[in-house]
Nucleic acid binder design. Sequence first.
DNA 1: CACGTTTGTTAGTAAACCTTACGAACAAAT
DNA 2: ATTTGTTCGTAAGGTTTACTAACAAACGTG
Lengths: 394, 394
Amino acid sequence: MPGGAAQLLTAPYAGGSLFANRSLRASGKVLPEHARSHNRSLVLQTLYTEGAQSRADVARETGLTRVTVSDLVAELIGEGLVVELGQREDARPGKPATLIDVDRTGFHIIGLDLSEHTRFRGAVVDLDGSIVARAEVALDGATGERAYELVAELLDGLLALTQTRVLGVGVGSPGVVDPNGVVRSAPNLGWSGLALQERLAAAFHLPVHVANDANVAALAEHGTTPGDLILVKVGHGVGAGLIVGGRPVLGSGFAAGEIGHVVVGTDGGPRCACGKHGCLEAWLAVPRLTAELARFEGAADAASARDETLREAGRRLGIVLAPVVGALNLSEVVLSGPAELLDGPLLEATAETLRARTMAEQHRDLRLRMTAFGQDIVLRGAAVMVLSGQLGVS
Amino acid sequence: MPGGAAQLLTAPYAGGSLFANRSLRASGKVLPEHARSHNRSLVLQTLYTEGAQSRADVARETGLTRVTVSDLVAELIGEGLVVELGQREDARPGKPATLIDVDRTGFHIIGLDLSEHTRFRGAVVDLDGSIVARAEVALDGATGERAYELVAELLDGLLALTQTRVLGVGVGSPGVVDPNGVVRSAPNLGWSGLALQERLAAAFHLPVHVANDANVAALAEHGTTPGDLILVKVGHGVGAGLIVGGRPVLGSGFAAGEIGHVVVGTDGGPRCACGKHGCLEAWLAVPRLTAELARFEGAADAASARDETLREAGRRLGIVLAPVVGALNLSEVVLSGPAELLDGPLLEATAETLRARTMAEQHRDLRLRMTAFGQDIVLRGAAVMVLSGQLGVS
DNA sequence: CACGTTTGTTAGTAAACCTTACGAACAAAT
DNA sequence: ATTTGTTCGTAAGGTTTACTAACAAACGTG
């Protein structure tokens, strides 16, 4: 490898610092106790995802020694988070193992979904994600403080439905929500700067986590599949939640996922409430779709007209998603909303459009599908958020 | 808060596990020594960003005690990464402080830019980001193993240009590059599955970091400003690099940022080499723009025709970026490429289009600008990558 | 010159995880 | 029935890490 091929070209020139930027700095100091809480979470999460097993199994899985695992498990048992289940049944050489597991019957989680237009929904969820009880309150146009009171009433009612220790409360709220659970802006509910997380935590003396409804829904989906994904939530409006690199994307102004008012295509479109023409919401929102479909009722070619309306909406969604899927190299796009509208021609048209408008080779493994959680996606996601926040690594 | 407002609705229904997903699991066990290396990096980064200061200053800044900082600094001095600069000059009460700093003159970084079509460029960069020396090799259509040899020759030549200890080598390569520095696919160079990082590291016995050129360029920009950003690199092709939540986005198939072949708009467009019509690259790539502009040379209305061509390209870029900026709530969009083409009507049209097609309120603080690093953006980013990889927290 | 302040170091302590060692309990082979 | 090998959980002791407490050195200030 001769050095002659490279030649000195120009005189040195002065630059600034390579990174003046603080955000590349380590987040803060790490003490031994932080390491321990990390390992504690590691044990908990191993138990949660792998199910009942012995301390030795956990040690092998985590890479920690049996000694350390025993110590951590003793601490967790002391707090009631983990329980011993007796000896393993199957016949193997060696001393029989004592099975341990997260106390799956010992805790409930409360999930709240504030994203619907006419009501707040809530549920009691157990640690495995089964919904144990449900409740709801009608909104009746309530806004501001009255809307907050309805949230508190709903939560109060849900807490009365369980006698089990409550791990925490997860809330999916519409609008822009910051990492501290302050609803910066939720026009429909007349909230701006409402410290929802803080107020609920203070009023109920429970851990509370509040996030944007679409982000919460994305958490629910991410729980079931690896890889990066976008969840598109179609309802009265259109919003999205993104998981990139295993983490929810918040955005510089905590407004990530607000794609409802991005203009689609270069050929106009329906007028939107925001004043622009051809916003995604103007094509895809449920009220607009149902109104459009109603126009064809009873007509001769009702079926094909309905089909074409849905396909057009699906194409529009694909047009908006294509740059996002391409730029982020997403592996999964999930739709949430009324299945009778979304699951069919609309979904198919979105898939076709996505395929046609992105580089197919890069996205061969791209999956587009409806959520399997139906209407409960935000409730389930809220539970995931609590589980991850209370038991997981921060 | 009466509980009566909430009512039990349905019977329990069975769900699966809340997260079967491994990716929400903690990354692995944490040992005390990991904590120490974290704190070590914290000290280094504090010194790097804040400049020369006393051990006590570092202690106050990091939250660690003076004792711990002294211990860590002793280790760093022992390795030659940090040096003592003598006593502080200014008159203050108390024992005079001994200033310490990263040894800014003691290290050089090698940066390589493989993204140009006709040549490989490289530079020797000091720790403050100043370019000390440059070199390049002509590509002459080389591909495959011959292209790799040219990289090695360029690196060899650059190493001969510095007598200072080399911290590491950073490489920005075109194509899809995985986190291990394997170039999965770079059609122009005829590379597929080339373990560039591993081979260079083995051949030169130096730390080597290889990443996609646009991602590397994004790192350079992120060094100067906080917040999430997308860097669009316009050259023979069009690619992008994203920083979200302070981290580079790789994508599920390590192909994030590949937006060159996303179709723009709903009204056709120029035919692209990939077969589709109206790809971003077909509108915006440098060869296409220069060819288009050449058509107007000498014409009567050359200036306005040129202007409109550039504006149209800018609008197309805005159309593709709008959904990305909206979905990610980005705070910054940076363009890199020939300033005579990009900086002017094109940039203005992109800005206008972005404003018109997204929700203005959410993106009031959105900044769109040219890079300040010009042609050296990949070289600078490569240096940032090395600095961050060798000194920073992983 | 006494005093307060700041710096950097020494000494000792607490926490966390490790390695090593061991008893208990079992299956399989003898 | 005994031996052998395996596995589990725990105990003891050592290493690493960062902390608190205390102190000498060196400097301005009144």
